[in-house]
């Protein structure tokens, strides 16, 4: 089956998606980004969890994020022995701070390593790496 063939040729790690995080990953497959907000204390959080870690409330609102932010910090990796990454060196890893105020780890794409800067405005890219998994990456804002 073509789907299985594709999944086999993608050699980087894939997330183990459980029920607690499935809505977030399913939204990425629709090319939508959501963050969670506690309905009791109002705290925003990433990554998704069933309970708010600040007050343990299970009452959660999913907020649609704009998908824009800026680079908080980054590194361009020139050495990684792991299968999959070894073949795509160099690549840029970054913590991006969303406009909503949450930081997440990601890759910066469509940009040469020399151009990446802290505070550079970026926008979400939804990378359908397999039929089952879409990864959230970022590129310079257009």
């Amino acid at each position: 089956m073509p789907q299985e063939k594709e999944a086999r040729t993608y050699r980087k790690p894939l997330p183990h998606i459980d029920e607690e995080m499935r809505p977030w990953w399913e939204a990425l497959q629709r090319h939508e980004l959501y963050v969670q907000k506690c309905r009791d204390c109002g705290d925003l959080r990433f990554h998704p969890r069933a309970l708010c870690p600040s007050c343990l409330s299970p009452r959660t609102e999913w907020l649609r994020a704009k998908g824009t932010g800026k680079i908080y910090t980054f590194t361009t990796t020139y050495q990684n022995q792991a299968s999959g990454f070894r073949d795509s060196l160099p690549y840029t890893l970054a913590w991006v701070e969303l406009d909503e105020g949450l930081k997440l780890l990601t890759n910066i794409v469509d940009c040469s390593p020399e151009q990446v800067r802290i505070n550079m405005p970026v926008e979400a890219v939804f990378d359908d790496v397999t039929p089952e998994v879409t990864l959230l990456k970022f590129r310079p804002a257009r």
Binding site: P15, H16, M21, R49, T77, G84, L104, V129, V133
Partner: peptide, 14 residues
């Protein structure tokens, strides 16, 4: 859980 949101992007210790 945190690994699922990080390892796909290739973080090394360095």
């Amino acid at each position: 859980p945190c690994d699922q949101y990080e390892l796909p992007y290739g973080p090394t210790t360095v």
